[in-house]
């Protein structure tokens, strides 16, 4: 063992290097295969008319040019943005609100936390089979209860005006638990003295929230916002199971539209071009939200 104790600093570094590379080798390989390669493949295939059967032919920018003129892609993109515009703020507010309430010391709060988390572990498919019934215009609980108050509920999934709202209602329900947990965790790290000092200075609940809680939650808010936006841009399951894109294409989303020419008509070249564009859009949104919150995720410890 004596050689170990006299080992030079350089050798120790060398061992750290070796273990470092050994520890990241497999994840690095998998990330490259399942992220980098698909991005390159999407771009490459996007320049061809590949359709599974037959040979792929290089067609240059034709797919991308077609994409700009494709009214359906426009509709899909608009629907996805509408979904994002409703889902992200609603998801953020509900999660933050619940976290603030559950953060108050109160009996039974732990039980609420557990119950509020259950929707998260339910798959979108299981949730959709549930909400399909809850949203039913005639038998559905939502409209029956609205009826008690004399409100004539909309046809939800059968109405081109309300279908996307209905999907947002279900999605917020299904995903808010994780974000609530993140906010609850964030609230634990805001020093209690800050609140007490503000209280002594006579600050009310609202001012305390704006000057103590909200700034203290900045990092968490950024993280939640990023997860919400990335999730929203890829919405597919709900629209596919609940409405099949209808009624009147009102719930066709980008991923849904990529899926249709890709696996319905096997137009892989065109679908790849769209995949690449979506990947770029998501990346831009992520980077933008990173900049807007003034927080650099990569500048870590």
């Amino acid at each position: 063992m004596s050689h170990v104790t006299t080992r030079s600093r350089g050798t120790a570094r060398h061992f750290q290097q070796r273990y470092g590379y050994a520890f990241i080798a497999i994840p690095l390989f998998l990330f490259l295969v399942f992220t980098a390669v698909p991005v390159v493949l999407a771009l490459g295939t996007g320049f061809t008319n590949y359709s599974v059967i037959g040979r792929a032919k290089w067609i240059g920018l034709a797919n991308f040019r077609r994409l700009l003129a494709d009214p359906f892609f426009g509709v899909a993109l608009r629907n996805t943005l509408v979904y994002t515009a409703m889902y992200v703020p609603a998801g953020l507010l509900v999660a933050l609100g619940c976290a603030l309430v559950l953060n108050l010391k109160h009996r039974g709060v732990t039980v609420y936390r557990v119950f509020f988390y259950i929707p998260v572990v339910a798959s979108t498919v299981a949730s959709a089979t549930m909400w399909y019934w809850l949203l039913n215009p005639t038998h559905g609980v939502i409209n029956v209860v609205l009826g008690w108050f004399g409100v004539n509920g909309p046809a939800w999934l059968y109405s081109s005006r309300w279908a996307m709202t209905a999907i947002v209602m279900m999605s917020v329900w299904a995903t808010f638990g994780t974000n609530m947990m993140l906010f609850l965790a964030g609230l634990q790290y805001i020093p209690r003295d800050l609140h007490e000092a503000a209280m002594i200075d006579g600050a009310g609940v609202i001012r305390r929230f704006w000057h103590v809680t909200w700034p203290g939650l900045r990092r968490t808010t950024f993280f939640v916002l990023l997860l919400l936006i990335i999730g929203a841009m890829q919405v597919f399951d709900q629209a596919y199971v609940l409405t099949q894109g209808g009624p009147g294409n009102s719930t066709i989303t980008v991923v849904y539209y990529i899926y249709t020419p890709g696996f319905g008509d096997l137009r892989m070249g065109y679908a790849s071009a769209m995949s690449f564009v979506l990947a770029v859009i998501i990346l831009v949104f992520s980077v933008l939200s990173n900049r807007l919150t003034g927080h650099d995720l990569e500048a870590a410890s």
Partner: peptide
């Protein structure tokens, strides 16, 4: 750039 966006490739 999550997997759903890259499903086709």
């Amino acid at each position: 750039v999550p997997m759903t966006a890259l499903a086709i490739p």
